[in-house]
Amino acid sequence: MTAAARPRSRTVLAAAHVVPDPAADTGPHGPAVLDWDATLAFRHHLWSHGLGVAEAMDTAQRGMGLDWPAAAELIRRSAAEARTVGGLLACGAGTDQLPLHGASLADVRAAYEQQLELVEQCGGRPVLMASRQLAAAATGPDDYLELYGHLLRQATGPVILHWLGPMFDPALEGYWGSTDLDAATATLVRLVADHPHKVDGVKVSLLDAGREIGLRRRLPAPVRCYTGDDFHYPELIAGDDQGFSHALLGVFDPLAPLAAAAVRLLDDGDRDGFRAALDPTVALARHLFQAPTRYYKTGVVLLAWLAGHQAHFSMVGGLQSARSLPHLRRAHQLADELGLFPDRELAAARMAGLLAEYGAEDG
């Protein structure tokens, strides 16, 4: 595959899942062993539609089974593949090589530096991921401003800042130094204002369209707002008379063909056509990301398997069991109604086989 031309009007990144090696002899606590051929083939699928790949993010099970050594290798390999096709690549840099509890602010800074250096060496656009360890160690907004300020000054080029809400990861409650979202937003805006040339954009995953729009309007030009809102993405990407959001979305993993075609309508100035194309996908997105939201990855991987992008329905750490069979059945139905499956008969046969395996075919 070759990378298709990227959309002109928006920067669009799909956070891609990983495919484990089902024959690997590993337990639920790792280490993760990936099927590299299938994992990288899916990145080429995304690039072939003109989408960028957001690599080693939470969709790839960072913090939920994919450890730092595996994530580092994933970044290296994806970067090498991106170079062969000219694909757009952003990569998560975090602190997940540290234990969840007991890390100091100095430990957190060093961990970020290690991962940031790797991403930059590989040529990816760094995404400074929200850090569980920083949330545990910080005593207030000044700790965030000091630590992130240091990282931004050190970065060789612009980075994407990442605000992931606690619905995606409960350990991130109170990020940016406050559980008051207005205060947290003010801290983030101050950080960006202090370093406008080192911030490519801010990725916001709070599932609150009004709050994202408010933040978007406070960002200095040319800093982008990347929506991570898997509930309200059509309206946020379409935008209004005062601006719009770009996209860095986990839901664009299964929606890649539809999402790419829809955004190209925006390239032609057809906002109504864009909404008509993408609005019908929201029911599936809301289903996949229903509470507990952090387990949305299970539905994403199911749909990749049903669509024929991989040969099995398994996940790092056994998280294919994180959603119920009725939930998975409904995901198949909604995706089928959207025409997401290149081979509907294959998808139906695989779904029927899954249900039959657990005695739920008539449920």
Rank of each mutant, 00 (worst) to 15 (best):
G177T: 02
L172R: 01
Q133E: 12
T187N: 03
L134M: 15
G123W: 15
P141N: 05
L145N: 02
L164F: 03
L118E: 00
P126Y: 13
F168L: 12
G174I: 00
D143G: 15
A171L: 10
D169E: 15
G165R: 01
G140S: 08
T139R: 14
G157M: 10
T179F: 06
S178V: 09
L152Q: 03
G177A: 04
G174Y: 00
T156Q: 15
L147G: 05
Y175P: 15
M167C: 15
P166Y: 01
T139Q: 08
G149P: 02
A136N: 14
F168D: 03
P141S: 05
G165D: 05
G124H: 04
L116R: 11
A130W: 04
Y175F: 11
L116P: 03
D182F: 06
A155Y: 02
L151A: 06
G124C: 12
L172N: 02
Q154E: 14
S178C: 08
H162G: 09
I160Q: 08
V159E: 13
T156E: 08
Y175I: 07
M167W: 09
M129V: 14
V159R: 07
E120P: 04
L172C: 12
L145C: 12
E120K: 06
L118Y: 03
L116F: 14
P166R: 05
F168R: 09
G140T: 01
R125W: 12
S178E: 10
A171W: 12
A186P: 02
M129P: 06
T185K: 02
A136P: 02
G123E: 11
R153W: 13
A130Q: 03
L188F: 11
L116N: 13
M129H: 15
R190W: 10
L172M: 13
F168H: 05
A136G: 09
L188S: 00
Q121A: 09
L145M: 10
Y175S: 10
L172W: 09
Y175K: 04
G123A: 11
P166K: 01
L172T: 10
P158C: 06
D143Y: 08
E146A: 11
P166H: 04
M129F: 15
D169T: 06
R190D: 03
A184M: 05
L152R: 06
A138Y: 01
W176N: 01
A137E: 05
A186M: 10
A184P: 03
L147K: 01
E117H: 13
V127H: 08
R153C: 13
A155M: 14
I160A: 06
R132C: 07
D180C: 10
Y144M: 05
S178G: 00
M167E: 14
W176Y: 14
D180R: 12
W163A: 11
G174K: 00
V189A: 04
T187C: 08
Q154W: 13
A137L: 08
V127G: 06
E117Y: 15
L134E: 01
L118N: 02
V159N: 04
E173F: 14
A137G: 03
T139W: 09
A137P: 00
A138R: 00
G149E: 12
H162T: 14
G124T: 05
E173G: 15
